[in-house]
Nucleic acid binder design. Structure first.
Lengths: 168, 168
DNA sequence: CGGTATCCACATGGATACTG
DNA sequence: CAGTATCCATGTGGATACCG
């Protein structure tokens, strides 16, 4: 395979950065399991049906990237807990957005469990794009702008293609 | 490598579905380029620095999955345009969520171009989780609930782990 | 329990040449 | 221009045995 562990050739966009960590399919599944409350090596092993060496490798990589932390339990130092860090928890919106897309276009089976507002017990709203005033925005109300046009100077991301011309 | 093209062993969650399509790193990068306005084989080729055969393969797969469509131009049938479908466009929130995460924890360079509200020109709000009334929710205001508890019956996703116990 | 260490299968990816 | 066809390198993943 190509040079998988060289950083992707793009320094100015966050997407390649995210991909470098999440680009491996098992990392995603491990994260999902972690979000659903799994903490131990053998739990992941059983639930995911992943090989030991791969699980070991992926957990180590997630820890390296600061997405999960590894803590031996005080009572039995052989027992180890893996927990999401803040950085890992911050992946929740991305995970949910992907999951919702998969539910919309996949087999069509809404999945379980459902993430709910703890206060009223109601399911959360679909992840979407919102203006700063909170109004939800459809793809037609969006446009690309150069950051420079907003006041701050910056470098390019992709060759300037300011229009979301994907929509006409 | 394992059986990469067997569906991931989970029928009731949308995340594996999404992963099956987006799990390949190049697919992500191609999608990003498409969202930024690229439409042609050689454009992708030049911008992404991907091998011809891989690009060909990934484009075909994206078309297969209904995420992009391939249309020969009426004037010159050799020229082909690749465009995002509705299904592809619906990946935008997930892409943005990942990108924002990457920007927050990556090299820290905010990327270009910036997606803005076409009406007021202001950058969109960060992708986040919202209650049905629109109020933004932090991780501590979230909890997992079984779908059955909401009225509709359903099957399991992962072994029942209703609590987002990741947060305490 | 939570890993390493091996060994092996094969998918992904790069480079390059060729084609309609 | 938009691909195929080939060849080859290596990363990902599975199975299994072993270890502290």
């Amino acid at each position: 395979m190509g040079k998988l562990h060289e950083p992707l050739n793009d320094q100015s966009c966050g997407l390649p950065t995210a991909l470098e960590v999440m680009g491996e399919r098992w990392s995603f599944m491990i994260l999902r399991a972690a979000f659903n409350g799994l903490h131990h090596f053998e739990e992941f092993l059983g639930v995911l049906g992943i090989a030991r060496n791969i699980l070991s490798n992926r957990l180590a990589r997630l820890v390296e990237h600061g997405i999960m932390k590894r803590e031996p339990l005080p009572d039995d130092r052989r027992k180890i807990e893996y927990r999401l860090t803040e950085k890992g928890l911050d992946l929740l919106p991305a995970m949910l957005a992907l999951r919702q897309w998969g539910e919309k276009y996949g087999v069509g089976v809404p999945s379980n469990p459902v993430l709910c507002d703890a206060r009223d017990g109601q399911p959360i709203a679909p992840i979407g794009i919102h203006a700063h005033d909170g109004r939800p925005l459809g793809p037609k109300e969006l446009e690309w702008r150069d950051r420079a046009d907003l006041g701050t100077d910056d470098h390019g991301d992709l060759p300037a293609r300011p229009a979301l011309n994907v929509l006409r």
